[in-house]
Each structure stands twice: as structure tokens, then as C-alpha cells.
């Protein structure tokens, strides 16, 4: 092969490779709204740092409290949050949602920081109370035109997984350094809650 055709060949390959780098999403065989509905649902709870930290705090606290709180709290939160989401979907107003979310971070982070161990029903009640604010915020922000069922499934799965991450991190509680780490994490979440409260106020 002479050098000119070889260069032409290389150029064609280069153009082809370059072209593949600018390819668009095909979306050829997705029923409208479905796949995006599930992924939008997954993305929604993890899109806001305030929600993420509060949900991780629930998992951390559950791990600190041990059984049965380790699974009761992460079970209670998504269910009551869904109830709040339903309220948001129905247009039932809930005043001070943003303050409630910030307060959830401050208090849930605070109980992790102080390693408080109240009775199970008190812990479940506290977590459930704040779950309504998170759910309501999500419910009112739901985008129109999405597949409701797949969106809800993605939304709940993502929330549950965030609790799971919190519980998994919380398993370090068995070690002394882990207990200190968890308390520091609680302090960080609480401080972030104060930041979000300040942002909501100004």
C-alpha cells in the first residue's frame, strides 16, 4: 500500500471515530415516559444534598440504636415519606416544608452526634414526622408527563438505597473509632442542616 491511500484510510477511520464520539441517544424502543420515568424517580431523591444527608442520617441513627430500630426506621421513613408525597401530589399544602427539611437534618444529625437512644416509638415518630416534609417536597416537585408507577418505583428504591447506605456506614459502630466517626458524621449533617436553614431563611 502506498502512503497516500494509507493516509486516506487513516483519515476515514479518524473521522469515523470522531463521529461516534458525538452520537446522540437513540431512544428507539422505549415506550414514551417509561424508562425516563423510572430514572427520573431514582434521580429525584439523590438530586438534593438536603434529602440525601437526612436519609443517610436515618440509616446512621438506626445503626447506632441497633435492632429493631436498624430496620424499623428505614422502613418507616419511605412509607411516611410516600404519604407526604401523596399529599404533595394531591395539592394539600404543608407550610414551611423547606424549614422542616432543614430541621430534619439538624435534629437527625444532632441525635446521631449525641448518640441519643430514646424508646423505639419516639425514634420512629421523629423520623416519620420529618419524612412527611421530605415526601411533600418531592410530591410537589414531581415533573409532569412521567410514568407515575415507574417514577414512584424509582423514587422509593432510591430512598431505600440511601437508607441502606446510611445503615451500611453505621455498621462501623461496633468499633470505638467507628462510634466517633458516626458522631462526627452526625455533627456534619447537623451543621449542613443549619446551612440549609439559613439558606431557606434569607
Amino acid at each position: 500500500m502506498t502512503s497516500a491511500p494509507r493516509h486516506a484510510h487513516l483519515r476515514s477511520v479518524a473521522v469515523l471515530v470522531l463521529a461516534t464520539q458525538f452520537s446522540q441517544v437513540a431512544e428507539a424502543h422505549i415506550r414514551k415516559g417509561e424508562a425516563s420515568g423510572f430514572l427520573s424517580g431514582v434521580r429525584h431523591p439523590i438530586s438534593g444534598l438536603d434529602h440525601v444527608l437526612a436519609m443517610i442520617a436515618v440509616g446512621l441513627w438506626g445503626a447506632q440504636l441497633g435492632a429493631p430500630a436498624i430496620w424499623v426506621l428505614p422502613v418507616a421513613f419511605p412509607m411516611v415519606m410516600a404519604l407526604g408525597g401523596m399529599m404533595g401530589l394531591l395539592g394539600i399544602p404543608l407550610p414551611g416544608t423547606e424549614y422542616g427539611i432543614a430541621a430534619s437534618m439538624i435534629l437527625l444529625g444532632g441525635v446521631v452526634l449525641l448518640e441519643l437512644k430514646p424508646p423505639l416509638w419516639v425514634a420512629a415518630l421523629l423520623v416519620s414526622f420529618f419524612a412527611i416534609f421530605h415526601g411533600h417536597a418531592h410530591g410537589t416537585e414531581l415533573p409532569p408527563g412521567q410514568d407515575g408507577l415507574l417514577y414512584s418505583m424509582g423514587f422509593v428504591c432510591a430512598t431505600g438505597c440511601l437508607h441502606g447506605i446510611g445503615v451500611s456506614i453505621g455498621l462501623v459502630h461496633r468499633w470505638t473509632w467507628g462510634q466517633l466517626f458516626l458522631r462526627l458524621s452526625g455533627g456534619f449533617i447537623s451543621a449542613m442542616g443549619m446551612y440549609f436553614l439559613w439558606k431557606a431563611l434569607v
Binding site: W71, P74, V75, P78, M79, M81, A82, L83, G85, M86, M87, G88, L89, L90, G139, G148, L149, Y151, S152, M153, F155, V156, C157, T159, G160
Partner: peptide
Amino acid sequence: VAGSWIVATGLLLLGWAA
């Protein structure tokens, strides 16, 4: 826990339907 996730999805679905 999986059951609770199904309940939560059902609640949201009820909201969507309403």
C-alpha cells in the same frame, strides 16, 4: 423491607391516580 417499599410505591401511585 421490600414489602414496605411496595406500600410506599402504592401510596405514591394512589396520589398520581387522584
